[in-house]
């Protein structure tokens, strides 16, 4: 069953220097319980895609298209109804654990909020549940921790506390925005384990936004590669890693340390740049004359969806 269905999503920001289009014609389906990884370099619009789903974008953003969660189109939903969805239907595991907790509020209280709001729990029951959740996520002395403030916790503990917060409303889809950004290898492994644990506990679908292919490989059923605001390749994890079709995906895999760290030459175009043809044209090794002006649609090549005219 399809949990979330995104159709022709376009997200643009009006700025003084013209319109910055961060998401272009995104089509994406997430099944119930599925883990989808969005891969791409910094500034390719992957975080914006995540925030578009939750409608947590700055006021100058303009979102068009359709984001269907179960039977509702989120883009036409009222603020009130959207608040019900946030946390209750779609949860967010934020990027940086150190700043995503309220410094002036006890850990326990911050976990209770969602329980009271979405599960209509009473205060004492929520308090107990918060401690249980922390214990479940591997925090020792959870009762004591729930009475502490964020600055008294280590980074890993904060991450766990945030994970607990993100699932308080029993969301059916969890969006994890760069959960491993800036972490060392050991903590990264812990976070991956944590995400697996969260999934096992809640059975929720996971939208993992990351630039770390290794993390995506460990967790995802399906990988979506974004480049300059567009989806350029989308396929099952093993397929995309073993047999990448798009030259950009191939380049990404070759830039991994074990593949020799060969960088892709050049830089991705600015998101405000209007390009009639392929957005990867300037950096592509297999480019042809047609790529320059012809709009490239997503097409099926060997079972992967690829946005390339000459993919093999």
């Amino acid at each position: 069953m399809t949990l979330l269905s995104i159709k022709n999503l376009n997200t643009a920001f009006k700025t003084r220097n013209g319109e910055v289009q961060a998401c272009r014609n995104i089509d994406l389906d997430i099944e119930v319980g599925q883990t989808v990884g969005i891969i791409g370099e910094t500034g390719c619009g992957k975080s914006v895609l995540g925030m578009s789903i939750l409608k947590l974008l700055p006021y100058n953003a303009r979102v068009t298209g359709e984001i269907r969660y179960l039977e509702q189109n989120l883009l036409t939903l009222s603020d009130q109804a959207m608040r019900e969805i946030r946390g209750g239907g779609i949860g967010l595991l934020p990027q940086s654990p150190s700043t995503s907790l309220n410094p002036a509020m006890k850990i326990g209280t911050q976990i209770e909020e969602g329980l009271v709001l979405h599960r209509k729990m009473g205060k004492p029951a929520a308090k107990q549940k918060a401690v249980d959740m922390l214990t479940f996520l591997g925090i020792k002395k959870a009762k004591k921790v729930s009475e502490q403030f964020p600055h008294q916790l280590s980074g890993g503990m904060k991450q766990r506390a945030l994970a607990a917060i993100s699932i308080t409303g029993e969301p059916r889809l969890l969006i994890a925005d760069e959960p491993t950004k800036g972490l060392d290898a050991i903590v990264k492994t812990q976070v991956v384990e944590l995400l697996k644990q969260l999934k096992a506990e809640t059975g929720a679908a996971l939208l993992l936004i990351t630039h770390d292919l290794k993390v995506a490989e460990c967790l995802c059923d399906k990988i979506v590669v974004m480049y300059s605001g567009e989806i350029i390749e989308m396929a099952a994890t093993q397929k995309i890693l073993k047999k990448p079709a798009h030259p950009y995906t191939k380049g990404l895999l070759q830039s991994l340390p074990e593949a020799g760290m060969t960088p892709i030459p050049g830089q991705s175009p600015s998101l405000s740049q209007v390009i009639s043809g392929c957005r990867f044209y300037d950096r592509c090794e297999i480019r042809q004359a047609a790529c320059r002006y012809q709009r490239v649609p997503l097409s099926v090549v060997n079972g992967s969806q690829v946005r390339c005219l000459y993919a093999d």
């Binding site: 939750l54 947590l56 608040r83 019900e84 969805i85 946030r86 946390g87 209750g88 949860g91 967010l92 934020p94 990027q95 940086s96 700043t99 995503s100 907790l101 309220n102 410094p103 002036a104 509020m105 909020e113 969602g114 709001l117 979405h118 945030l162 917060i165 993100s166 308080t168 409303g169």
Partner: peptide, 26 residues
């Protein structure tokens, strides 16, 4: 602008809730 406000929002908190329970104590 801090991220904990976004966290609260992502949990479905209303403006009033964020203003009085999250921002005011800070």
């Amino acid at each position: 602008e801090k991220e904990f406000v976004e966290t609260a929002r992502s949990l479905g908190a209303s403006d009033g809730y964020i203003i009085f329970l999250h921002l005011l104590p800070n």
